[in-house]
């Protein structure tokens, strides 16, 4: 009997405290939810190919330029327009978040790994702020600009039997990036990778690649090659 009374009393005490804490949290939620500014997303024209990076909405996190963070949002990155969308359940709308307000964002990929995107100023051709996916993070970063371009193709008929001559085509661009030295474009092949190093270092890079049996042909092998070469202390010649 005594134990039961003590249990009830403790439960009552706990309940009171939890109520106080959750009341505080509900205000915080209300305040935090106001950070996202944007415009309604207008559907892109349908062509062959896919303008978004992911097939559907993926839960992710956004870091804002004002230091704020919004977590557990349904995100979708538009490779076509280089913009980030989120789904606002409360107003049932797809919203393009103001690029100027975003510092970066991340979400879990299909393999479970976190994919991180960072907004950076690109000073090459077509200057401006771009979202780069960070493939490796270090003194020199390996970045990719996951761009989908709308290009003209030979005429075809879509599912609705409408004749079209445009398609979304992947034009991903890979860069080595250093905040001091800027961007250096690299293509997905061995020779392009080797040219990023000084002539004296190239020999050693070749040796390292051979030793680790790496053949640069895709994104995965480029990341692997760079990680190993970086570990060897070889620097990119910007």
């Amino acid at each position: 009997m005594r134990t039961r009374i003590v249990t009830i009393l403790l439960f009552a005490l706990l309940f009171g405290q939890v109520e106080l804490v959750s009341a505080q949290e509900s205000f915080t939620r209300n305040w935090d939810g106001q950070k996202i500014k944007g415009v309604r997303h207008i559907a892109y024209p349908t062509y062959t190919g896919f303008p978004f990076l992911t097939d559907g909405w993926v839960p992710g996190k956004i870091e804002f330029t004002d230091g704020g963070v919004a977590d557990s949002l349904f995100l979708r990155y538009s490779s076509f327009k280089d913009e980030l969308l989120y789904y606002n359940e409360n107003v049932a709308s797809q919203i393009v978040i103001d690029k100027v307000s975003i510092k970066g964002f991340s979400f879990a990929g299909t393999d479970g790994n976190i994919r991180t995107f960072r907004k950076q100023y690109y000073d090459g051709y077509m200057k401006g702020e771009r979202f780069f996916e960070v493939l490796t993070d270090g003194n020199i970063d390996l970045l990719v600009y996951r761009k989908m371009s709308l290009s003209s193709t030979t005429a075809y008929k879509d599912e609705s039997n409408i004749l079209k001559n445009m398609a979304y085509i992947s034009t991903y661009q890979y860069y080595f990036y250093s905040p001091e030295k800027g961007y250096s474009l690299v293509r997905l092949n061995r020779n392009a990778f080797l040219t990023k190093f000084s002539e004296t270092d190239q020999k050693q890079v070749k040796k390292v690649l051979r030793k680790n049996r790496i053949r640069i042909a895709d994104e995965e092998s480029l990341i692997l090659a760079w990680k190993i070469v970086e570990r060897e202390g070889l620097a990119i010649n910007f």
Binding site: G33, Q34, I36, K37, R40, N88
Partner: peptide, 10 residues
């Protein structure tokens, strides 16, 4: 001249 959103406000 576009449909703006600020949090849940339209």
């Amino acid at each position: 001249q576009n449909e703006r959103f600020y949090g849940d406000l339209r």
